[in-house]
Simulated scan of single mutants.
Amino acid sequence: MTIETLLKQAYGRLSGLSETAQLDAQLLLAHTLGVSTTYFFTWPEKEVCEASRQAFEDLLKRREKGEPIAYILGEQDFWSLSLETSPSTLIPRADTERLVEVALEQLPSGASRIVDLGTGTGAIALALAKEWPASQVIGVDYQVEAVQLAERNAQRNSISNAEFRQSDWFSALIDEAPFDLIVSNPPYIDPEDEHLSQGDVRFEPLTALIAEDHGLADIRHIIKQAVFYLSPLGWLMFEHGYDQGESVRKLFNEHGFVEVATHQDLGGNDRVTIGRLAEQGVTEHSRGG
């Protein structure tokens, strides 16, 4: 059977299940054959051996059941990085690149101290570390598996100015403050949200997706604690849900942040809200985790 025939059959099987059926099929076959997708345009008539056809069939069945491509392949591109993925962490998504863009727009390119809370694969921390090589970046995650994964991704992308630690939000950072920038893509989905039973998120870790208080509990906690960990005029930035911009701005304002603003993603939806600590610096008392 030829590459062209295999791909056509795979398109048909995935077309009603995935909005990116053609790309999914190409990525799975490229992974199976150890080639790039451009190979298919040059050699569509190339015969595929039985062992490779069976391996491709196994991957295709997993995708038919809804398993995300990033988990099947074990990798995902983000920013200019190639990241190892794992079902123990969220899949890095294009929407999250908006958080990186906003950070780069707001801060000078000189040396900064940065924390990424809930780092997962390390995507945000590593993207910022790569763009700002003079900066010191710390990524923290409650899950030890995520910390280990982020460390592997730092090595995979030859990034030396980022380190990763196990921490329940700020708990391992008490002696590290102050920071010039705190970024986070925390859990922000309401536990009752119907989308949790749809698409790729069915396979992602629930603890990294949901938060109480209509998805705002972790954001509220981080904002409340961030005032003790930021430098004077330091920035705090979140990715959040498309309908949470107003609520997140209100939380920033309630805790004395200034220059509060919400930025939209490529789809025109509220996606990133930022705030700047006023003139106050780090307070040594009343820090929590």
Rank of each mutant, 00 (worst) to 15 (best):
R113V: 09
E97M: 11
I138K: 11
G110N: 10
Q143T: 11
G122E: 11
Q143A: 15
G110C: 03
W132G: 00
V102N: 06
Q106F: 10
A146T: 07
A150V: 10
L128K: 03
P108R: 12
R98P: 00
A146I: 01
V144E: 09
A127M: 05
D95S: 06
S158V: 13
S135K: 02
E131V: 02
L128S: 02
E145I: 11
E145C: 11
D95M: 04
R93F: 01
L128A: 02
A146L: 01
L128H: 06
N157C: 05
D116L: 01
R156D: 06
I124E: 04
D141H: 05
D95L: 04
I114G: 08
V144H: 01
A150M: 10
A103K: 06
G139R: 02
L117S: 14
P133R: 05
A129N: 02
E131N: 01
D95H: 06
A129T: 04
L107E: 08
A146K: 03
E101H: 11
T121C: 07
A150S: 12
E101L: 10
L99Q: 02
P133F: 04
K130W: 14
Y142F: 14
L107S: 01
S135E: 02
L104G: 00
S109F: 13
A146G: 06
I138Y: 10
E151S: 12
R93Q: 02
G120I: 08
A127Y: 10
N157K: 09
R156N: 14
S112K: 15
G120H: 10
A94W: 13
A134W: 13
A123C: 13
V144W: 04
R113H: 14
V115F: 03
V140S: 03
S109Y: 09
A127I: 03
L99F: 02
T121F: 02
D95K: 10
S109V: 00
A111Y: 03
R93P: 06
E105R: 15
Q106E: 12
R98V: 15
P133E: 00
V140G: 07
S112M: 15
R152D: 01
N157D: 05
Q136I: 07
L149K: 10
Q136K: 13
V144C: 00
V140T: 14
V100R: 06
T96L: 05
L107M: 15
L128F: 06
I138E: 06
S109M: 08
T96H: 05
V140P: 13
G118V: 04
L128G: 07
W132C: 00
A150W: 08
A127R: 06
G118E: 03
I114S: 07
T121E: 01
R156V: 10
E151A: 12
V144F: 02
W132S: 00
A127Q: 08
S158C: 06
V102L: 11
Q106R: 15
G122Q: 12
P108Q: 13
D141Y: 07
A134S: 14
G122A: 11
Q106I: 15
E97F: 11
L128E: 02
E131I: 01
T119I: 04
V147P: 08
S158L: 10
A127G: 00
L104C: 00
G122F: 12
L117D: 12
T121P: 08
R152H: 05
R152T: 05
L149R: 12
